[in-house]
């Protein structure tokens, strides 16, 4: 565990907490894509199938449980408790366009053709594009609340920090995982446009509004 990996995990945790707190305190999930949240729940479920078969550390197991619980709690808040505030008219991205290619690619390009390995690979590919429905929603409405922007910034920073972690691990341990790294780069690139808007607008106290 290095500082970049820890920073990535904490940024991820922060993003999840920001989202849950936003929904809970405002009693509303307006502006949040339920489609992206479904994809994140699916991602964690497919990736952490090894929760009971592969013990790494207490830290690892606790984080896995927290990510899974938070993902399903978010879905519960969006689709059950505060369903009336869910902005489904603007959340029109077709999930099969992301799930099917991710599943197909996982079957073809993986480290080993076993159920647990293919599911892990599927989760890596799916996570890379899981934010697209949310970004699509922001582009459709042309704006995002500040709190939603903070959520997206923390979530985007997480994989960016993981990339630094992978570079560090390559030089310090000779460890590398091409699938995770390439997917992580794709994932981070998808946030670049948002990062630019966040830094030039939100950090200067303005609302995130897309140029007309």
């Amino acid at each position: 565990m290095n500082i970049f990996r820890l920073g990535g995990d904490l940024a991820h945790l922060l993003a999840i907490i920001i989202l849950l707190l936003k929904i809970w305190t405002t009693r509303s999930c307006a502006g949040i894509s339920g489609k992206s949240q479904i994809l994140f729940a699916l991602t964690f479920t497919a990736r952490y199938l090894d929760l009971f078969t592969n013990f790494v550390s207490v830290y690892n197991s606790v984080m896995k449980v927290v990510y899974l619980a938070a993902a399903y709690a978010t879905l519960y808040l969006m689709y059950v408790k505060f369903k009336a505030t869910y902005d489904h008219n603007h959340d029109t991205f077709r999930l099969e366009f992301l799930i099917l290619p991710a599943a197909g690619l996982a079957l073809i390009i993986n480290h080993e053709f076993s159920i647990i390995e293919v599911m892990w690979t599927f989760s890596i590919y799916l996570e890379a594009v899981a934010i697209l429905p949310q970004l699509f929603m922001v582009s459709k409405t042309g704006e995002a609340e500040s709190i939603t922007s903070h959520y997206l910034f923390a979530l985007g920073s997480y994989r960016a920090l993981y990339i630094v972690n992978w570079v560090y691990r390559y030089y310090s341990e000779g460890f590398y995982d091409m699938i995770a790294t390439l997917a992580g780069v794709v994932q981070t690139v998808l946030y670049c446009d948002f990062f630019y808007l966040y830094i030039t607008k939100v950090l200067k106290g303005k609302k995130l509004q897309l140029p007309a």
């Binding site: 990996r5 592969n54 790494v56 550390s57 690892n60 480290h111 000779g174 460890f175 590398y176 995982d177």
Partner: peptide
């Protein structure tokens, strides 16, 4: 290409 098993990242 993976050098370590099992997976230790999240």
């Amino acid at each position: 290409s993976r050098k370590t098993l099992p997976k230790d990242e999240l």
